[in-house]
Amino acid sequence: MNLTLKIWRQAGPDAKGSMETYPVSDISPDMSFLEMIDVLNDQLVRDGKDPVAFDHDCREGICGMCSMYINGEAHGPGRGVTTCQLHMRSFSDGETIYIEPWRAAAFPIIKDLVTDRGAFDRIIQAGGYVSVNTSGNTQDANALPIPKDNADKAFDAATCIGCGACVATCKNSSAMLFTSAKVSQLALLPQGEPEAARRVQRMVAQMDEEGFGNCTNTGACEVECPKGISLENIARMNREFLKAQFTSEK
């Protein structure tokens, strides 16, 4: 396959960026999207040019590091995939492909396609945990049965990889899907119960402070989420939040 790539290049956080054009040739349909970028970078280095900076690590769709906005979609065409799981067979010979970084004020650009998603870490730090020490002096794991449905729903919410596609794809750059996934996981489990009110209040406050936008329920986040995190979680978080506002002392 021969392709034309239009890629966002930006030297640093404060530099002015622009779309640059690169032709690539001899691309195999079996290559992953990132392997195609490897081919481009190999050529750029050999030509003495600056390779395209992009985030990637596990290349099997679980670390959440890769983050490209391809042809106007987070992680490109295809549902339930990260950029590294996107294969070139999804494109056709001669196509022009547009590649941009995640676009959100709360994810400042570091270089080219690399952004700073530290805001997500700070939201988790605000309360996305159970306050239990790691002493091992807890009760037996089976002492507290958890209904399978709840355990399964908690697991589904917990599969969030923190890639930020939900934010990138949202017209408001809202982080509701990400935040609600963690709130939901812990709200569905008895271990999360004692801190539920405090958790949801603090995490929502942090989310707002980071500069993420509001949720207007368009549902684009759910569509683009590589792990299929459900909008149900946002509804659950809203419920948890309301409940907390009425019942907690703060």
Partner: peptide, 12 residues
């Protein structure tokens, strides 16, 4: 035990 206490959703 520790992981369950942290809210790790193991299969049940």
């Amino acid at each position: 035990d520790q992981c369950v206490a942290q809210g790790v959703p193991f299969a049940r």
